[in-house]
């Protein structure tokens, strides 16, 4: 179990570096550290479906961010002016978040031991009702196919928006 916590700490450090570094390329690579650590964490938690999708999408997002957006020569501009009451606001937020998170965590079941009845129904009857040996796929495409349809619609809309915004037709000549 400690491996997952170590990976979680690595992910937090990676995201902090991504926020605080000066160069955009370093920020992008620190974000990739977060994603790859998440992929290894999925493997430790015995979720190979998630791990495959995570590593493929992470590598692809890294390539797209580095190559297609021209990030390698840009430098982010970080102003030195601090907001008023920034540290006070951070402190208040952390205390409030920790309080409610602690209250909520005490109600959760133990990690990795779900007591939910719905999922056990799926595990028992998934194979005979759908015929799919991979239980994750039988949930994704049969029991919860509406969710997959929504996810496909979101992806379709995102790609459509990117293509429409970046199209050649109607772009202003300089």
């Amino acid at each position: 179990m400690w491996q997952v916590y170590a990976l979680a700490i690595l992910m937090i450090v990676g995201s902090l570096v991504a926020v605080h570094t000066r160069y955009l390329l370093s920020a992008v690579i620190s974000l990739a550290v977060v994603g790859l650590a998440l992929c290894v964490a999925f493997l430790y938690l015995q979720a190979p479906d998630c791990a495959i999708t995570q590593i493929v999408v992470e590598v692809l997002a890294l390539i797209i961010l580095i190559r297609a957006t021209g990030v390698e020569r840009d430098m982010s501009e970080i102003k030195n002016r601090k907001e008023i009451f920034a540290y006070e606001a951070i402190g208040i937020f952390i205390i409030a978040f920790a309080f409610f998170a602690f209250r909520a965590l005490s109600y959760l079941p133990e990690f990795g031991h779900p007591v939910m009845k719905v999922s056990q129904e799926y595990i028992r009857k998934g194979l005979e009702q759908t015929g799919a040996a991979n239980l994750v796929t039988s949930v994704l495409l049969d029991f919860r196919a509406y969710d997959t349809l929504g996810e496909a619609t979101v992806l379709f809309t995102a790609i459509l928006g990117a293509i429409v915004v970046l199209r050649e037709v109607g772009r202003k000549k300089k």
């Binding site: 190979p48 495959i52 999708t53 799919a132 039988s138 495409l141």
Partner: peptide, 15 residues
């Protein structure tokens, strides 16, 4: 082999 082994349409399509 998405219904037999880990993976599926999304991961394979991205590959």
């Amino acid at each position: 082999h998405g219904h037999l082994t880990p993976g599926g349409g999304f991961a394979g399509g991205v590959i």
